[in-house]
Design a protein around this nucleic acid. Structure first.
Length: 153
DNA sequence: GCCAACGTTGGC
DNA sequence: GCCAACGTTGGC
């Protein structure tokens, strides 16, 4: 089983939006980055777990745990000219962009902030979210990193 | 295939 | 709002 970190801007979609759909899956649409698409297509599997991370906000950090509930499948927003994630170059016969479904497993008891993760740099120095300039909206992390971060809760 | 320009991300 | 970092685009 793989572990992941999903970034989301809470002003657009927050942990509480995810919590509203308790028991139901939410499709993670809008990925328009090839590396992230390939993660979803080639590596991610139903049953994998992910941290839910708030970015571009007052207190960036990890706020919850999600489980992946589907394989990668076509993200139809790419074909919708009125959608912000419309991609005119993607053809229905060979869709360029995929998405997966995720479901909230639980909110963390408290937010594990970006500042706090940085304080544990010695143990988490390979964590992609901490690396300068990292912009991927979904990143993998090791089981060791996962367990260590959960231990901070 | 190179690389400058551009758009986006995200912490601050 | 600023700006550094990075992916993508497009001219050559």
């Amino acid at each position: 089983m793989q572990h992941w970190l999903f970034k989301s801007e809470p002003a657009t979609f927050s942990i509480d939006d995810l919590a509203t759909a308790t028991g139901k899956s939410t499709c993670w649409d809008g990925v328009r980055n090839y590396q992230v698409r390939n993660f979803m297509r080639d590596v991610m599997q139903p049953g994998d777990l992910g941290f839910f991370y708030h970015s571009s906000c007052a207190v960036p950090g990890i706020t919850g745990i999600v489980s992946i509930t589907s394989n990668a499948y076509t993200d139809n927003t790419q074909f919708d000219p009125g959608h912000v994630h419309y991609d005119a170059d993607s053809k229905p016969e060979s869709p360029r962009w995929l998405m997966v479904d995720v479901k909230l497993k639980r909110k963390l008891k408290r937010i594990i902030t970006l500042d706090e993760l940085r304080e544990h740099h010695h143990r988490l120095k390979e964590l992609l979210i901490l690396k300068r300039g990292n912009r991927l909206s979904v990143t993998p992390l090791s089981s060791d990193e996962w367990n260590y971060i959960l231990g901070l809760e």
